[in-house]
Design a protein around this nucleic acid. Structure first.
Length: 308
DNA sequence: CTAGGATCCTGTCAGC
DNA sequence: TGCTGACAGGATCCTA
C-alpha cells in the first residue's frame, strides 16, 4: 500500500502535470469512493498539492479542496490527452500508488472508481478494494479534518523522548502495532515498520515497555532512512514499475532490506529472512539480527549495524 | 485509557 | 478444472 513515501512521490509527480489545469468533468464509477458533492469541484482550477502523512490533498480555486486516501490499493494515474496506452506514455503521464498493471493498462478499467477530466489530460483514481476515497471539503477545514488533525508528527519530526513516552504508556503492546498507529508516528505502514525495526535490530513482537530510549531512537532513525531512500528512488511509480527494458520491476528492490524478502539471506548477517505474523499483519524479520527475547542476548540491540 | 479482533472490498494464490 | 480459505503496503469500530 501506498505509505508516506509513495504519497510524497505522487504529490511531486502530479504537481508537475496538473497544477493550473481546470477540472472539466467528474465521473464517479463507485459511489463509496467519492464523498461529497462532485459538482463543487467542477470548473475549479488545481492550485497545488499537500500531503499529511499518507493523505494527499488537492487544493482547488475558490477555497475548495479534495482529500484523497489511497489506503491499501489506491492509485492515481494521470494520462495526457491523446496519449495511447502502453509504455510509450512515460513522458507526459504519471502513475503512482499501489503498483499494478493499471499503471500501463488501458484506462478506465475495472478498478477505476473516479475519473477527473481536465484541460490537458485525465486523472484516474483506481482502487481495487474500495478502501480508499476522495473527499470534497472546504480548504479551511482540511487541517481540522478528523483524520488529519489526529496525525502525530512524521518520523523526521518525531523526538525519541516523545516516542519513548508513548512506549511506556502502551507498554503491553508489540512495538510493531504501536509504530503503525498514525496517532503515534504519521506515515509508517507495513513496509516501513518492518524496515525501521530491522534497522534498529528490534524484533517486531518486543513489547514497548521493554524498549530502551536508544532503541527507540534507532527505530525513528531507521524509518527516516528507509523513507528517504524510497522517496529518492521514486516510490512505487510507473517509472520504477516498468524497467527500461519493458520488464516489470519492483521499487522495493531499491531499498527494502527485509520486506518481502522471506527466504532470502539477510543483507547484514546472511541468515534467512522469515515471515511471521504480528499484530495481525504479515511481518518480515531476520531472527538473528532481531532477537525476540531480550534477556538471552541483548548484545546486538542498539548496535545498529554501522558496518562492523 | 489500552488491547485485541472483526470489518470494509476485490483479487489472487496455495491446497485440496 | 473448480472450490475454499487465507491473506493483502490501512484504518476504524466494537468489545472486554
Amino acid at each position: 500500500m501506498p505509505e508516506l513515501p509513495e504519497v510524497e512521490t505522487i504529490k511531486r509527480g502530479l504537481s508537475k502535470f496538473c497544477v493550473h489545469q481546470k477540472i472539466r468533468k467528474v465521473e464517479v464509477a463507485c459511489e463509496k469512493s467519492f464523498i461529497g458533492p462532485k459538482e463543487v469541484v467542477l470548473r475549479r482550477e488545481i492550485i497545488g498539492f499537500r500531503r499529511f502523512g499518507k493523505a494527499l490533498v488537492i487544493d482547488l480555486s475558490d477555497g475548495v479542496s479534495m482529500m484523497i486516501h489511497l489506503r491499501m490499493t489506491g492509485q492515481l494515474i494521470y494520462r495526457a490527452a491523446g496519449q495511447g496506452q502502453g509504455e510509450s506514455l512515460m513522458e507526459d503521464s504519471f502513475a503512482g500508488g499501489h503498483p499494478s498493471e493499471s499503471f500501463v493498462d488501458t484506462l478506465p478499467n475495472k478498478q477505476t472508481r473516479v475519473i477527473f477530466e481536465m484541460d490537458k489530460g485525465t486523472l484516474y483514481f483506481n482502487d481495487q478494494r474500495k478502501f480508499g476515497f476522495v473527499k470534497v471539503l472546504p480548504t479551511e477545514e482540511v487541517e481540522t479534518d478528523k483524520f488529519i488533525a489526529s496525525l502525530a508528527p512524521e518520523p523526521w519530526k518525531t523526538r525519541p523522548e516523545a516516542l519513548y513516552e508513548v512506549f511506556q504508556r502502551r507498554s503491553g503492546s508489540p512495538v510493531k502495532a504501536v509504530i503503525l498507529d498514525q496517532k503515534v508516528i504519521a506515515g509508517i505502514g507495513n513496509i516501513y515498520a518492518d524496515e525501521a525495526l530491522f534497522y534498529a535490530g528490534v524484533h517486531p513482537r518486543r513489547l514497548c515497555g521493554s524498549l530502551s530510549l536508544a532503541e527507540t531512537a534507532k527505530i525513528i532513525e531507521g524509518a527516516c532512512k528507509a523513507m528517504d531512500a524510497s522517496i529518492e528512488s521514486g516510490g512505487s511509480t510507473m517509472a520504477t514499475y516498468v524497467r527500461a527494458d519493458g520488464t516489470r520491476g519492483d521499487y522495493l528492490e531499491k531499498f527494502a532490506q527485509v520486506f518481502r524478502r522471506e527466504g532470502l539471506p539477510c543483507m547484514r548477517c546472511g541468515n534467512e529472512i522469515i515471515k511471521i505474523r504480528v499484530a495481525g499483519r504479515g511481518t518480515h524479520v531476520c531472527p538473528h539480527c532481531q532477537k525476540e527475547d531480550i534477556g538471552a542476548s541483548s548484545a546486538s540491540v542498539a548496535k545498529g549495524g554501522s558496518d562492523d
